[in-house]
Amino acid sequence: MSRGAERFDRLDALRGLAIVWMAAYHFSFDLNHFRLLDPRQDFYGDAFWTLQRTAIVSLFLFCAGLGQAAALDAGQGWPRFWRRWAQVAGCALLVSAGSATMFPHSWISFGVLHGIALMLILSRLAAPLGRWLWPLGAVAIVLPFVWQHAFFDTRWTNWVGLVTHKPVTEDYVPLLPWWGVMLWGLAAGQWALARRRGWLTGALPRVLAPLALLGRWSLSFYMVHQPVFIGALTALLSLGLIGR
């Protein structure tokens, strides 16, 4: 099988796992938003939820880094990269518009899709650094914890991540520290493809095939799952089938 036709079902399944975890988290958030959880949950302060969010975003970005390593290994050129990138960036704009309607005071100006769109470009440019991606990723992760400045606290600058306080928004995935996670995924992918290729290209147990399929359609699922969840809950509440 040629490199270009090689399947990465294991990577797709890992991305699919992140999607399932994210969907469960968001559905719980929606139940709480509609006051259907008792007791009410604090998704912004309770470590049970905040740590899950950190883990989910980390897994997504690590998978994105692995995916970039696989794409570059397969010889993906810039034209194909930009076509995929345009889909991510376009969806990011839709998320901003949708969140502004539902959460006008905490709309998403730089969430996970915005972050991924920027990080994909930077990661592709950084890919030739090879093993130096590891220390670069470490710097990206550590820097916002050791240095911040009020200049980065505005809507126009907080995408960098060097904020003195977290902005009021429903989703916030700035360049720093999160680019470091994608860089580590890229570095891990390069290492695995050079030394343990089977880790990414090996056969996948049949029971995990649905996860791989979901992982291949992760962006589409991401864009539709919340409207479906919110629409279904709204309809059920309106019909009096749930809630008190």
Rank of each mutant, 00 (worst) to 15 (best):
V139D: 10
R195C: 06
A5P: 00
L61M: 11
F62R: 01
A117P: 11
L14Q: 00
H26E: 08
A187R: 01
L176V: 07
S99M: 04
L233T: 10
L233A: 08
G67M: 00
G111L: 00
T50Y: 07
H225V: 13
L113W: 00
P135E: 11
P167V: 09
G161N: 10
R197I: 15
W178D: 05
Q41G: 09
G185K: 04
L136V: 04
G115Q: 04
A97R: 02
V146K: 06
V57F: 02
W85Q: 10
G111R: 00
R53L: 10
R80I: 05
L237A: 06
T157S: 05
P135L: 10
L211Q: 08
T54R: 07
V88Q: 05
Q148P: 03
P39W: 10
A212K: 11
E6A: 10
V228T: 05
P177S: 08
H225Q: 13
A86T: 06
S218K: 06
L175G: 09
G4S: 07
S220W: 12
I121D: 04
P167H: 09
I56W: 08
P79R: 11
L186A: 03
G4Q: 14
V57C: 02
F43G: 09
R197T: 15
A150N: 13
A188L: 15
R195N: 14
A192G: 08
R131M: 08
G67K: 00
L61E: 03
L113M: 01
L125R: 04
D12I: 00
F229W: 09
F152C: 04
R197K: 11
F62Y: 13
S218H: 08
M22Q: 01
